[in-house]
Design a protein around this nucleic acid. Structure first.
Lengths: 141, 141
DNA sequence: TTTCAGTTTGTAATCATTTCAATGTAACAC
DNA sequence: GTGTTACATTGAAATGATTACAAACTGAAA
């Protein structure tokens, strides 16, 4: 937990148990959860938790660049603890989001000359290997 | 208008005036409009237009890969006539979305070996040159 | 011209997100 | 440690984009 306390203090954000739990959850779950998932999982440990607190906390963590928002899905925002730069592949069949660890320095450098780039999001959508084997029905997200 | 009629017929989609107007609008406006913008602009010409029709039409055009949805903004979906592959830069200061015409073949090829990739979205966020000059206040989207 | 499946329309329902006011608490000074 | 205060949490209510639905309409083919 000290890790998360330090991150908050470094950023001048007040330390609260709720904030620590949410940070820990995001850091330990690489599943790109949405607000509902974070809320319902953490509510098991702390039944008094309010969904508004989850929204508030994600908002402040995002503002300080500690977590990032994935807009890869059209219908829901997903959250990611911002450890390393990586991209994302959304399987339209099973809905899973897979981390992609390849970078494109060429594109990044070109942009950094022209703009002040704070966030780089590479989103790829299609069918993952597992679903290609299964030949499942394709949904529209 | 014949261009849009052909696209619809090629895809086996029934041709209606509403669909043609929405396609024309998206093709001629490179402004990445959201549903509200498309609706309010087209309602000037056709006051009977329903917002539900805009939603329905965008949904079917998206399904047939004729338009693409941009999820670069956290709060609204934006639409783009799918002419060429390009990426997008969102200025967090002025909110403008700028087309980025650079590609990254390395990343694409690596992915295409592993997955069936239907969509490639490169989203970059930061401050555009104009706003950097102006030193405007930065908002959080 | 007739027919009908598919489309458009407007209203109502849904649901994620935001707002807000009351209560609670972390952090700091003493 | 205790008191103080600004900030955080909570839950209920409001908001607003999107979806569902049923009735009226229309494109396309015979």
């Amino acid at each position: 937990m000290k890790k998360y306390v330090n991150i908050l203090k470094e950023n001048g954000i007040k330390v609260t148990p709720q904030r620590l739990e949410i940070m820990k959850y995001l850091d330990e779950h690489m599943t790109h959860p949405d607000v509902e998932k974070i809320y319902s999982d953490l509510k098991k440990k702390n039944p008094a938790l309010s969904k508004t607190t989850v929204y508030n906390t994600l908002e402040i963590l995002r503002k300080y660049n500690i977590v990032q928002v994935l807009t890869i899905s059209e219908s829901e925002l997903r959250y990611d603890f911002k450890n390393t730069l990586h991209h994302h592949f959304l399987c339209k069949s099973c809905g899973k989001i897979i981390d992609i660890d390849v970078e494109c320095p060429k594109l990044n450098k070109m942009l950094k000359g022209k703009y002040k780039v704070d966030e780089v999001h590479g989103y790829f959508k299609g069918i993952c290997n597992v679903c290609r084997g299964k030949r499942k029905t394709v949904t529209n997200n």
